[in-house]
Design a protein around this nucleic acid. Structure first.
Lengths: 204, 204
DNA sequence: GTGACTGATGTCGGTCACTGACATCGACCA
DNA sequence: TGGTCGATGTCAGTGACCGACATCAGTCAC
């Protein structure tokens, strides 16, 4: 693997094939899905796209991270939803807006991809841990945005966590076999359920 | 370390000093707190109590797990709270009961210990991931208990996740500098806040 | 009492995730 | 032409973890 010089489709001579991180991500998902996460070594992923293990770790901080990229944009979508709502909106209205904004990241065409990705994650605890951590970070970010709008604690964290919880449940349903509603519709309905559940008569 | 034979306080000759897992846990927390999690090797923990690395990994599946033991009892407490409530109670009442039951695991004397433990976790992402995963498992268990009582999805998962969220926020506050209320009182109040936040006027 | 058996531990060797230091070599720029 | 840069390769190392096997005090059947 001395030199990876390559001729592109346009006939241009390039030192390195472009899109290295994307190629690694595709290869990793494929291998994880085929053999399982633990049974796949970082070196194998790298080799499968003509690179070395060392290069893999230059692009991704660890073996799990290769499945969790683009979270920043996703979080940004949530935040955009927050900003798109009038300043006097209630926390719950903000949550609804954030949810609606986030769902644009998951158009129906993406369902098959999301399904295989999620099935890989569901089969490995280490990957679940990483996913949980990402969602928790998202909640933290959201809570901060809420606080910046004047929502006090613990309401801000409560609302933010609820948003993430609703999203998680909705996403799981969106992925489910036979489900055909859009993620936005499902999220709306789950949020409604949350309001129902937390309503009820006052507790002792 | 050929033979670890030891004379106990009662003068009995024993092959192995008893309470190995507990000794390892204490030593681990101490070292993690002193030097940090990453800067402490499993071998060091083991050696600090006169054992080998291999033995450490026989008692704990990994380096993080040594800080997360006893979760089963904790989860059981939640479940006991669930069972202690009449069958016609609303999901929210069940959640309140579970929360109240769980707080018995954290009497005020335990605050200092919980604080140092949490500060270790807060300083390391890998430990945060594990904690999140344990809490998520708890939520899953709780949701199952709710379903067993006839609560349907997604209400069951929503209620269970909310319980865990409330617990997490309350615990964080309980640990906070200067806080003196009991965990039960704080949890009650946070649950009340959740009801307030999710109430509000209907959303579009 | 003796020998088989058990259970907690030690020893050894190996795999793999991840890292730092340094070398390579086209591309690009002065 | 020469120098710098950026993405990569090479190499050697550390530490988490695991399987296989050895050890040896205690126990129990006989």
């Amino acid at each position: 693997m001395k030199s990876a010089a390559v001729i592109t489709r346009l006939g241009l001579m390039v030192r390195w094939e472009p899109g290295t991180p994307e190629r690694l991500q595709r290869a990793a998902l494929e291998l994880y899905a085929e053999r399982g996460f633990e049974e796949t070594t970082a070196a194998e992923i790298a080799q499968s796209v003509g690179l070395t293990e060392r290069t893999f770790f230059r692009h991704f901080s660890d073996k799990r991270e290769v499945l969790f990229h683009g979270q920043e944009l996703f979080a940004r979508a949530f935040l955009d939803g927050v900003d798109a709502v009038p300043p006097d909106a209630s926390p719950l209205e903000v949550v609804a807006a954030a949810l609606r904004a986030a769902t644009v990241f998951f158009p129906d065409e993406r369902r098959p991809y999301s399904r295989t990705r999620q099935s890989v994650i569901d089969r490995n605890p280490a990957l679940q841990e990483r996913e949980l951590h990402k969602l928790a970070s998202l909640a933290t970010t959201l809570a901060e945005a809420l606080r910046a709008r004047g929502v006090t604690e613990p309401a801000a964290t409560l609302a933010a966590q609820s948003a993430v919880t609703v999203f998680g449940i909705a996403f799981g349903q969106w992925i489910a076999e036979g489900e055909e509603r859009s993620l936005a519709d499902i999220a709306d309905s789950v949020l409604g359920e949350l309001r129902t559940v937390t309503a009820g008569p006052p507790t002792a």
